[in-house]
Nucleic acid binder design. Sequence first.
DNA 1: AGAACTTATATGCACACGCATTGAATGTCT
DNA 2: AGACATTCAATGCGTGTGCATATAAGTTCT
Lengths: 123, 123
Amino acid sequence: MKTEEPLIESWRNLLSQYSLVAHELDRALQAEHCLTMSDYEVLDRLIAADGCKARIHDLVGDLHLSQSASSRAVARLEKCGLVQRAMCDTDRRGVFVTATDRGRALHLEARRTQLAVLQKHLA
Amino acid sequence: MKTEEPLIESWRNLLSQYSLVAHELDRALQAEHCLTMSDYEVLDRLIAADGCKARIHDLVGDLHLSQSASSRAVARLEKCGLVQRAMCDTDRRGVFVTATDRGRALHLEARRTQLAVLQKHLA
DNA sequence: AGAACTTATATGCACACGCATTGAATGTCT
DNA sequence: AGACATTCAATGCGTGTGCATATAAGTTCT
């Protein structure tokens, strides 16, 4: 395989590395914690926020997910009891999402799983 | 946001860059050529092969896709007339996939689309 | 040759995704 | 205040994905 465009070479490297890590991360999180990579990302962002609380709208910007996918991720997390929805009193269109105790606990465990995978592939 | 683990920092960068490029690439290929990113990747690998011809099994290794997803991508390309399936006479389990003239032509056009997107984001 | 195993593709199924739309609340402009 | 536009979240829909399985062909071992 000749190198052709270095641009394509870069893209292939990016794609390869992403695919490898993403697939394994997804498998590990699913197997050990019943979480999608996206679910974990939502939880992670939420916990990074003030008071483990954020509006969905604010999460979307950080998430590499569409608004609808983010909304559904929150719904999944809520169904598992990791997160709670609450109306936002200052703007009743908005929805505040808060991590529950179980959510915070699971996040800690899942974080270890994540680090193990990253260690293995990005170290 | 404190930096915490540099490992996580790396992963976030990888994820961000991938998401940006992948989404835009997908949109552009779909809009201009009715191709998924995966479809294009299959076509691309096929054309890189000897005689624009390869067995599905051999494609799978390069593709960042599962066997089933690869099989379906080939099916899509065939439905669009970009590719042809043919039995492999030396091993009748195998299926040879060959790019048609239209497939080769479309690949050239799509390649320009790809390069434009990559240029914009990876240059 | 025949049975047991392996390999190459296709397919049923459940699920996460993005796009488009809906519904409700807010904002703006006259 | 009232009409129109905008914003936030949820949902219907179509589609691509991986996993498990099915099917068919090749391989190995006795």
